[in-house]
């Protein structure tokens, strides 16, 4: 994924939004072995444990709630079709690529930027690699995860209806000299 809808590199942290990002939501009984095996086979990724993500927001599998997962992939249409034919019983698979927006944040101040708007302990001891947290940023529902360390890089998703707000919020939050250097 090299194309970006927009990039802001003027602040303490580089914020970019990929042009295309395939997202498929799965709601199913995640305690069912057959379901889990099918999901792991099709996505090619291990089932993440509670509040974790396997991979990142470009290619990954995230734990959203006890019965919900989010798949990040290149081809959401094929993914949806494959999952729909592989799962059985009560389940839902939906392509939500156009309903969500992904932002990638890179730079060592990312923890500080996110901590400005989310009621989450983002200290290096509390929030580590592979953690995935659904919360709010300001007043907007988001989810973010940590994908690599030094320089720290985080991924963040929100509803696409609030992506303009989210982008501006993040740009403002990472203005030069505005980080408290607390974390």
């Amino acid at each position: 994924m090299s194309e970006f809808k927009r990039i802001s590199a003027d602040g303490e942290v580089t914020i970019s939004q990929p042009t295309l990002n395939g997202m498929v939501t799965i709601r199913a009984d995640l305690t069912d072995e057959k379901t889990v095996t099918a999901i792991e086979q099709i996505t090619g990724m291990a089932l993440p444990s509670q509040r974790k993500i396997t991979g990142d927001l470009i290619r990954g599998l995230a734990w959203m709630s006890p019965d919900e997962l989010m798949v990040f992939c290149d081809d959401p249409e094929t993914m949806t079709t494959q999952l729909n034919s592989a799962l059985s019983g009560a389940f839902l698979v939906a392509d939500v690529s156009h309903a969500r927006a992904v932002f990638l944040l890179q730079g060592d101040g990312t923890r500080e930027v996110l901590a400005k708007g989310a009621p989450v302990d983002l200290s290096p001891e509390a929030f580590t690699l592979g953690d995935f947290r659904r919360t709010r940023m300001g007043q907007v529902a988001v989810a973010f995860c940590m994908t690599s360390q030094s320089p720290d890089s985080f991924g963040l998703i929100c509803f696409s209806s609030v992506q303009e707000f989210m982008f501006e919020w993040l740009v403002t939050a990472c203005k030069k000299g505005s980080l408290p250097a607390y974390l």
């Binding site: 709630s65 919360t135 529902a141």
Partner: peptide, 8 residues
């Protein structure tokens, strides 16, 4: 309800 989290 955990509205901003898992939604449950």
């Amino acid at each position: 309800r955990h509205v901003y989290g898992c939604g449950q």
